[in-house]
Amino acid sequence: MKLDEKTNYIVSGLERSGTSMLMQILYTGDIEISFDNSRKSDDNNPRGYFELNGGKIINLLINGDFEFDKYKAKFIKITAYGLKFLPPGKYKIIYCERNIEEVLDSMEKMMGIKDRNREDTKKSFIALNNMIKKKINNRKDTKILYIYYNDILLDPEKNIKKILNFLNLSYQNLDKMKAVVDKNLYRQRK
């Protein structure tokens, strides 16, 4: 399915908020996405990370070295902090949100640690999320769709239709896309 050739498309959100699942939904729906396999799938993301540059695209953004022109009309994944360094352009962003406790649980599991300063970490990530949302909401070159991870698991059809409407695409691959939402992945839920 074709996206606008003048627009950069981004899946974003805090790390461990469902961004990889969203990328996989898009990929399955024959929507063009760009990623490499520099970070292999693992127990934390059994279906893959769908990232560029091994997930370290943020370094390129900070240095102003990321070539957005090469990625027009396709989705790339840039997690929330990277959006702080987004140059002027024309963007459509699907921003994934998830319960912060689940995000932190998932991060700790991925790192194999128990965060002794979890409340401080939580405060910092909430502040990051709020700052980034405010920043992108204020941009005139950006259109945003917010998707809630927990909602998409509960009602995939409604949420995937929201995504397709946001992208001005038909529902022809809706069933395939819905099938991606594997409730078994929802391991961190409390």
Partner: peptide
């Protein structure tokens, strides 16, 4: 989002392999 928050976020992103 303070400088201190930013440092904490960056440290966490490094630990997760995002930076």
């Amino acid at each position: 989002f303070t400088k201190e928050d930013e440092e904490k976020v960056k440290n966490r992103l490094r630990a997760l392999g995002y930076l």
